[in-house]
Design a protein around this nucleic acid. Structure first.
Lengths: 353, 353
DNA sequence: GGACCGATTGGAAACGCTTGCACATTCGAT
DNA sequence: ATCGAATGTGCAAGCGTTTCCAATCGGTCC
């Protein structure tokens, strides 16, 4: 394996000059640079990563921490992050930060001591102590989908977007609207679910519409759990809503499948709207608010890398709010005439299942 | 930041002993080990990653290369890999190896020179030269979902599994069976698609069933593309099959949606079977062959780590074939009586759309 | 009782880069 | 011409571990 000294010898310069020529730090004459580049190529020289990191204190490596990998939002954000990092010449070290598992280990061992130059935390639920540890480590950190206390985060305005989604249903004439969303986990702050539910609630209140307890549904962010929950609610002719606003497209698709399995047609018998921009939603005709997850990942990388340069740019803790794009498809429509019951459902007879 | 010397001073031993105590290499007296452990904890000491890697030549870091991140199979395998690596105390460096983009860079820069101790390649399509580069690098490598020439791979037997899927349909009485699968890309070997298509073809031949050209469909491994292709074929009453065998569950779901959008019922008018074990398939009632993708990732890690120890275990290039589990659900059934036309369709009138 | 052996320990030499510093050279502006 | 600044280069001192080697110490084996 050729080392930097071999390159230096072949190029007829010192190792220091090779280092400068290859890294771009410090000034090197054009001719020297050329000779170095050629020698490096000829020898098949590649910098030793650990040696470089040890000497310089920089690792060109960014840690990415996320609680799930295989769910749509996370894998899509990750794809954006990976692409942007590769382009910038950075490595990506992945930490799957699951509930209760290896939390401590990741937070201490892995995130310390020059393993990474910075950190991207995707929709992480941390308790106060953990956030403290993170900030104490001094690692430049950017959040995605947060917000995390005191850490600049790339995200959408969950409340506003949810309100927009709910208002869309209200605008179509729906009055019996249910929300399927996530839960705030004990101890950990998870403002995404909270924000989306708040958006729903505020829209309903602003329109003076009732929110039956049964309409505010807590579910996992999975198609299957949303399916189960939706099916159960839809099977009840008294409480059955005419529309669902779901906190994610995966949930929304579950709701659509539940409707279909009960013989209900979308959007005739039931309107469904989600948040995400999941590719499969296109086929199902799912109306949604596209939150451009991939772009969130890309932005997070740029934001973080901006802090790492010699002249740290925008270090402020200000969040960056990305717009969501409304995609009107065919899963939402005005409720059928006979469905529009304004008052909280009493014994009103619903049209058969 | 405390260094190893600080720990040594506090514990009253030399730096060498601290290193031995913490790493477990070399012998250390119980009392010394205790003092070191305590001192390290008290000081909040964590090894410097690059320094350790430089001095030892080992990085405790595994590279994972995959062409996609957000597709079900890849993200699920990745989740398995991540979990197993974390448990073993290894880092995971992620390389998104896209078609034509950064191939060279990843293969030279990233994979060389002590960045990683080993490599896991997930369903990679490499040309011969690239495989050569990979092997020349001397990096211990394990494939997942391959096979890759000369590299031990964890996978299912694509041909056998596909044959089993097709035979299931044949056993139900279907004779008009179409396959939606992937393509072998130009120049790159991609045996997965090939194997699955071959399994389909061989099953059909063994049963003396015809394969219309229109029935052997090439599609992206996405729900949306499979949807489009299936819809197009199903819309043709002459060539319409009574069953689909799809190379992935995502494709199979696309086919199911296409059927539904054309007013066909599954399984009454159309049977669909896939390969994967995608969670959402459960809700849709998709019959499939579960290839335990997560487990493939876990196995790959164990296999690779086994090679890295002081006494490298099973270094042989033998592939490891995992079994697939048949999940019979409700998307497959015998064809309707009036559908069973054995001969290649002539002008036989099909029952209306 | 003496040679030998394994366990334990410390000193010091790597590991392969980066970078502060000093020095030489070149260049443009007085 | 003269001087200061800017540019280009090499030397050598790290960066924070790991590990080879030698040394010490109890005990074991004949």
């Amino acid at each position: 394996m050729a080392g930097i000294k071999d390159v230096a010898r072949v190029a007829g310069v010192s190792a220091a000059t090779v280092s400068r020529a290859l890294s771009g730090n410090g000034s090197v004459s054009t001719s020297a640079r050329e000779r170095v580049t050629r020698a490096a190529r000829d020898l098949g020289f590649v910098l030793s990563y650990p040696a470089s990191a040890l000497a310089s204190g920089r690792s060109r490596n960014i840690g990415v921490v996320l609680p799930f990998i295989s769910r749509w939002y996370f894998s899509t954000v990750l794809e954006g992050i990976a692409s942007a990092l590769t382009e910038a010449g950075y490595d990506l070290t992945l930490y799957n930060f699951q509930k209760d598992k290896f939390r401590e280990k990741v937070l201490t061992d892995f995130l310390q001591r020059n393993r990474t130059d910075g950190l991207i935390a995707v929709a992480l639920q941390l308790d106060d102590q953990e956030i403290g540890q993170l900030r104490a480590s001094g690692l430049p950190t950017v959040g995605v989908g947060g917000p995390l206390q005191g850490i600049p985060t790339i995200r959408i305005d969950d409340r506003a977007v949810s309100r927009q989604a709910t208002d869309h249903l209200i605008g179509l004439g729906h009055t019996r609207i249910s929300h399927i969303g996530g839960e705030n986990e004990e101890g950990h702050s998870f403002p995404i679910s909270l924000g989306r539910r708040a958006g729903y609630t505020s829209a309903m209140q602003a329109a003076s519409l009732p929110v039956l307890p049964a309409w505010s549904i807590i579910s996992d962010y999975t198609t299957s759990d949303a399916y189960r929950q939706a099916k159960q609610l839809l099977a009840d002719p008294v409480q059955r809503p005419t529309a669902f606003f779901c906190a994610s497209d995966e949930m929304a698709m579950g709701a659509m499948m539940a409707a279909r399995d009960l013989g209900l047609r979308v959007p005739d018998d039931l309107s469904v709207i989600g948040i995400d921009g999941h590719e499969t939603g296109d086929i199902l005709g799912l109306t949604t608010l596209d939150q451009s997850a991939r772009q969130q990942g890309v932005r997070a990388v740029h934001r973080l890398l901006g802090q790492l340069g010699p002249t740290p740019a925008d270090v402020g803790p200000a969040d960056e709010i990305l717009p969501a794009r409304f995609l009107l498809r065919t899963s939402t429509a005005a409720p059928r005439r006979d469905q529009t019951v304004t008052a909280p459902p009493s014994s009103t007879v619903q049209v058969g299942l």
